[in-house]
Design a protein around this nucleic acid. Structure first.
Length: 697
DNA sequence: AAAATTGACATTTTT
DNA sequence: TGTCAATTTT
């Protein structure tokens, strides 16, 4: 038996043991949210609930797997029979099971964003929209507005009026595209991400027997990261749970960072109205970060326009102040980060150090430095593995193996063959769809590459349950094309194909594999993070994770907050929450980097940039500041330390960050520490510059 | 109709 | 940085 009282604090215990009826858990960052869910899973099973009756919806499948693994370890049994995953993944499985109910007799395919763009491109060509008009919105832009309008459930024209006024003149054209897009998807049995959710809702609402089935199976529902659900997801959850009301949702409004995708903080705030009699539990004790780090994050939160009071406190009272480092440029920033990493790696293994940033490309200069220094790293976020051109090629060829016709896959797959372009590909597809095999045969006699592909597809037909064999054959077929097309970075791409083979080895069904490749962005090598690699990640992909040492880079205007968000105060708040999420990932060390200039593509020079307003607005310095001198690097005294006045004699080992090689010589300007700290730099002169800064000579 | 070439351009975040 | 669309050549 598990001793819950001993392992959990009172609030956590309350959330764990409230198994009947609706529960809302407001879980501050680092408050043991995952622990609570894990123990609750175990508790339910110990109380005799059959694992099959539990549904755990999380933001990534990786998170779900981890929780199931940990609960299983507590119980000393496998919990694989709990259903867990993302909303989208769950919806896919449900729709697949009941595809025929919705009229998809030959199944359906899931579209990734590249597929969707292809459809939009065709529609634009057909309507001859935006020919020669350079300001006509890009396909990607059109698509993102269509999706956003759907997610927010507001008409497209209103969304565009509100968020993209400059596109006003194109509203009618975009609406035409939207209509056609919907029709086209239906015709080809294709579902995009949003369709998965809306079709599932329709399935449950219009088919009572399906709803009854779902309710009978999933008697206990838990939803993690509820602050990032959108309207239809919230409706799905309540639809499935409303009969017996055994639903627990967990979230933190301060960490809502997916508004751009239609996530609605209102969901978590409205939950009590949706389920009257809900039990509300607040987890406010932070087990992750040291108090100086929490002081900084509370400081960030204090500037929120819309404030929800939250009093996070830590039992880890000691610890270093977060540091703020101002390198002269982004290149210099990369070197400074590298130098910190080298130093931190004496204390922590590489995979316990993370560098976080706002957008995928912000890490490029750093990646160059890491490669030069042969520091292994693993990057999360940015481009999706399955959307890299070569992976996508292989996946499309694989899609052609399944029996059901798939126009997009045919177009891309056949387009690889010499002598075949869009027109021919479409012609061949039509022939295939209508069973005119003679036409295909005729072309095969003319084009040996097509003949070869046809033969391969025939050989692989019927191997739906051995996806691994299918994919390896496809890869062998594809390799010559890869060599021809991507000769420059061949080794990297070949390695990617190897990875793909490793991934597919874990599947026994081709369709499920293909769907997962579209639905599962997280790490390509499964849920085992590499043990020996530094972590680079966008902040969005860092959600829910934690590291002993965290660095946040590019805290400058236009990058963080992103230039796009500057107009709307609501989006500004979301950016601020994003910084909050980034900083609350840190357990012991937090480093914030503000380069004074960044490389500007257009001019080819470094342009000066000002610091992020989120840094300027921090009222009292919650950090120790270092400024890089233009003459070179600065050296800090090794014996420097901060002494907490209220702790008497015991010195805080601030020297840990005062001996960096990058700070080679010159002067240091640092922030005046908060009142309760006293600076102690033996052997060095301290000069007060103003009420905010000290200079050390 | 397909392939090669040029020229412009735009870059958040993710299921 | 590479991606995307328009243009020219095969």
């Amino acid at each position: 038996m598990i001793n819950y009282e001993k392992s959990l604090n009172p609030a956590q215990l309350e959330a764990v043991t409230a198994t009947q009826g609706p529960v809302l858990v407001i879980a501050g960052a680092g408050s043991g949210k995952t622990r609570t869910i894990v123990y609750r899973l175990a508790y339910l099973v110990e109380k005799g609930i059959v694992p099959e009756n539990i549904l755990l919806l999380t933001f990534t499948r990786k998170a779900a797997n981890q929780m199931l693994f940990r609960a299983g370890r507590l119980l000393e049994r496998e919990l694989g029979s709990v259903s867990g995953g993302t909303f989208h993944g769950f919806c896919f499985l449900l729709l697949r099971k009941f595809a025929s109910v919705l009229g998809f007799n030959n199944g359906f395919q899931i579209l990734d964003s590249g597929d969707c763009e292809d459809i939009i491109r065709d529609i634009r060509a057909e309507f001859k929209l935006g020919r020669g008009d350079r300001s006509f919105p890009r396909n990607r832009t059109i698509l993102s507005f269509i999706s956003k309008a759907r997610n927010k459930e507001i008409p497209l024209e209103i969304l565009i009026e509100k968020e993209a006024f400059h596109l006003g003149e194109y509203i009618q054209d975009i609406k035409r595209v939207e209509n056609r897009y919907t029709i086209e998807k239906q015709r080809l049995c294709l579902l995009d991400y949003d369709d998965l959710l809306f079709f599932t809702e329709r399935l449950l609402e219009e088919h009572g027997e399906v709803l009854d089935f779902v309710r009978a199976v999933y008697k206990y529902i838990m939803v993690d990261e509820y602050q990032d659900t959108n309207l239809v997801q919230a409706r799905l959850a309540s639809l499935m749970a409303s009969q017996n009301g055994n639903i627990m949702v967990v979230g933190d409004d301060a960490q809502s960072i997916y508004g751009f995708r239609g996530a609605d903080v209102g969901n978590i705030l409205d939950f009590p109205n949706l389920f009257p009699g809900v039990k509300i539990v607040r987890l406010e004790e932070n087990f992750r970060s040291t108090q100086p780090i929490l002081d900084l994050t509370n400081n960030i939160l204090a500037h929120m326009e819309k404030k929800f009071e939250k009093a996070l406190f830590s039992s880890r009272k000691d610890g270093n102040l977060p540091e703020l480092i101002r390198p002269v440029s982004d290149m210099s920033q990369a070197r400074a980060v590298l130098s910190r990493i080298v130093e931190l790696s004496g204390k922590y293994p590489l995979h316990e150090i993370a560098v976080l940033f706002r957008a995928g490309y912000h890490s490029y200069p750093l990646e160059v430095e890491l490669n030069k220094a042969s520091v292994p790293y693993q990057k999360f976020g940015g481009i999706k593995f399955s959307e890299a051109a070569h992976i996508k090629d292989v996946l499309c060829l694989t899609r052609m193996v399944g029996g059901s016709p798939d126009l997009l896959a045919w177009k891309r797959g056949l387009g690889l063959l010499p002598g075949v372009g869009p027109k021919t590909a479409e012609r061949l597809y039509k022939a295939y769809e209508q069973g005119q095999h003679e036409d295909l045969l005729k072309f095969a006699r003319k084009n040996k590459w097509f003949a070869e592909l046809r033969e391969l597809l025939t050989d692989l037909a019927g191997l739906e349950n051995e996806p691994s064999r299918v994919v390896s054959s496809i890869i062998e077929f594809y390799k010559p094309y890869l060599e021809k097309q991507h000769a420059e970075d061949l080794p990297k791409r070949l390695a990617g194909l190897d990875q793909l083979q490793q991934i597919v080895a874990g599947y026994n069904n081709l369709d499920v594999f293909l769907a997962d490749m579209v639905l599962e962005n997280s790490d390509p090598l499964g849920f085992a993070a590499r043990e020996d690699a530094l972590v680079l990640s966008t902040i969005h992909s860092a959600k829910g994770l934690e590291w002993p040492a965290v660095m946040v880079i590019d805290l400058v205007e236009d990058r963080f907050p992103s230039r796009h968000s500057m107009q709307d105060p609501g989006e500004m708040d979301e950016e601020r929450r994003l910084l909050y999420v980034a900083c609350t990932r840190a357990k012991d060390y937090l480093g914030l980097f503000v380069p004074s200039s960044v490389y500007h593509r257009g001019s080819g020079f470094n342009q000066p940039v000002s610091e992020s307003p989120f840094i300027s607005e921090l009222s009292t310095p919650s950090f120790c500041e270092f400024r890089e001198n233009h003459l070179g690097m600065l050296k800090t005294p090794q014996s420097a330390s901060f002494v907490r006045k209220d702790l008497g004699q015991s010195a805080v080992p601030a020297s840990a960050y005062c001996k960096h090689k990058i700070f080679g010589r010159g002067k240091i300007v640092m922030a005046m520490p908060p009142n309760k700290y006293k600076v102690n730099f033996p052997g060095f002169g301290l000069k007060v510059i103003n009420s905010d800064y000290l200079e050390i000579e």
